[in-house]
């Protein structure tokens, strides 16, 4: 599938599986899971350095920014101001202009505050950021995000960490049909079939964290997700058969006794 590269804002990505780096037991497990997943985009959060315990290792000692595209997120931000502040800090920390923009609306659902998201995206795009917005499965909001200059949109499948899979396939399909930038289904994937389905619907990539990190065997799940995303992509490109209510025989009747 070398001719099937994903391109966002002029950057080429080999893998259509993107992974988060949270919730792992340790950095060794994080590194191994990412390697096995084949992902070349990894999301990270921006937080205070632990100044009292300097023995704490740095994530980027394990995840080489030369090998992976580091995608900082604004996880945990509930206001436009915070999301913009964390984005600027991420850029100052020196990885790139990329940001996975999250403006959360509510602690219980972690659903995006889409009004705040659009506002924050406008500010950041003006400052030269490449904004990849974590958004709801709302086609109108997705269109607005593209209109203001987001080079991709990242609608959720289900609430972050819920593992519920794709709750609204029809909305996602509408987004994929109507929005002419890459769609990365982000959040809510529970198992391999969820990821395969997202790709079969026509998603350009899938981003997940908990589904891998929270599995009983994260390394094995990372591998499962790699194949699921790959299989889903191949099936999408191959074009599935239409659904029919009644049977159609696969073997010819001719030549029967």
């Amino acid at each position: 599938m070398h001719d099937d590269r994903l391109v966002i804002a002029g950057r080429e990505f080999k893998s259509r599986l993107w992974v988060g780096t949270g919730k792992y037991k340790d950095f060794v497990e994080t590194k191994k899971a990412i390697e096995v997943s084949g992902a070349d985009v990894v999301t990270v959060a921006v937080r205070r350095v632990n100044i009292t315990d300097r023995s704490k290792e740095n994530l980027l000692d394990y995840i080489d920014p030369k090998k992976y595209t580091i995608l900082p997120n604004t996880a945990g931000c509930y206001t436009v101001e915070d999301a913009v502040r964390y984005s600027r800090l991420a850029r100052a920390a020196g990885v790139s202009d990329l940001v996975k923009l999250e403006v959360l609306g509510d602690e219980k659902t972690l659903f995006p505050d889409t009004a705040g998201l659009i506002e924050a995206a406008k500010i950041l795009i003006k400052e030269g950021f490449i904004v990849l917005p974590y958004t709801n499965d709302d086609p109108i909001v997705a269109k607005k995000l593209v209109d203001i200059g987001c080079p991709a949109v990242m609608p959720l499948a289900a609430p972050i960490g819920s593992g519920l899979g794709i709750r609204n396939p029809y909305n996602l399909k509408i987004i994929m049909e109507q929005v002419k930038v890459p769609i990365i289904v982000d959040a809510g994937v529970g198992t391999a079939s969820d990821a395969a389905l997202a790709m079969e619907y026509g998603a350009d990539a899938v981003l997940m964290n908990t589904a891998i990190a929270g599995a009983q065997d994260p390394i094995a799940m990372a591998e499962a997700m790699k194949y699921a995303v790959h299989a889903g992509r191949l099936a999408y490109k191959a074009g599935r058969i239409p659904r029919k209510l009644y049977a159609t025989a696969s073997s010819p009747i001719e030549g029967m006794l």
Partner: peptide, 26 residues
Amino acid sequence: LEILSFIGGGAPTRFVRERKRLKHAR
């Protein structure tokens, strides 16, 4: 002064606690 860097993310800490609890329950 605030000094920040990249960490594994973005998991709100309650998920980490949930996973610990799940492991414990297994």
